[in-house]
Design a protein around this nucleic acid. Structure first.
Ligand SMILES: [Mn+2]
Ligand SMILES: [Mn+2]
Ligand SMILES: [Zn+2]
Ligand SMILES: [Zn+2]
Lengths: 121, 121
DNA sequence: TATGTAAATGCACTTCCTTTGCATTATTTT
DNA sequence: AAAATAATGCAAAGGAAGTGCATTTACATA
């Protein structure tokens, strides 16, 4: 199961929801898929993406990723036309300044708009 | 109802959930609160905040706000200690570069960490 | 190979939040 | 006052995340 799901995620170029996975593996129970992905997340194999749609999406981490805030946080792009979310792994999140007294531990940056595929149609 | 909810939001310094509003107006139905806030959102009086907690939060827009991507988008800070989300209206979101072909229409930037109140305790 | 142990799976169920349909009530307009 | 429009309350639906428990499968080792 883990190998199958890993393969599924690797072949996808976009982030997927649990439902997407469910549709791809109709014979497997939703709970199994859920817990498998959860295991991946806990072991820094997959990262979660909250793109504002209300449904968590998942994508494989880059090779060598340790989900570190300094080095691995990248920008996500959500296309409001095709509803797909892509990792822009080459676009690291810039340094964000917070007011005195605030301590930042994590940053989530989602750009919403039209993706390259949709804008060229 | 609209005046009451507006006043409630204006007095709050932090973003509130629908549940928060429900607790503040126990005599009103949650649907009414929901739809009132929805009206505010649709008329750029209130903006929605997705801070990653899974529950949408709401906050009054600044005076003169038109929810414009260029001028009005600001940073949000979610404190994982007190679970409060604040608008950092003075901290505008920096220019984000997206790859060729992508068109950005909106940006959501949430910093997660410890807020000033919690860090000073 | 047999058997005991640990891990993985499936099912049912819960919880939380958002949203909608529809009947009722209140408000505004003519 | 009557008609039209808007606001409210109740009930229910829907989606998604998460959990408890029994069962099945895989694995290690005697
Ligand atoms: Mn990503
Ligand atoms: Mn805000
Ligand atoms: Zn698209
Ligand atoms: Zn705090």
């Amino acid at each position: 199961m883990r190998l199958l799901i890993y393969k599924f995620l690797a072949e996808k170029k976009v982030a997927v929801t649990l439902s997407d996975t469910e549709n791809a593996f109709v014979k497997a129970d939703r709970t199994t898929l859920y817990r498998t992905i959860k295991t991946f997340v806990e072991n820094d194999i997959v990262h979660q993406i909250d793109d504002g749609t209300g449904t968590i999406k998942y994508a494989l981490c880059e090779v060598g990723c340790s989900c570190d805030i300094k080095t691995d946080l990248h920008l996500h792009f959500y296309c409001s036309n095709c509803n797909e979310t892509v990792c822009l792994t080459d676009h690291k999140i810039p340094q964000i300044n917070v007011p005195e007294g605030f301590i930042s531990e994590n940053v989530n940056l989602v750009v919403k708009g039209i993706c390259n595929k949709c804008s060229s149609m």
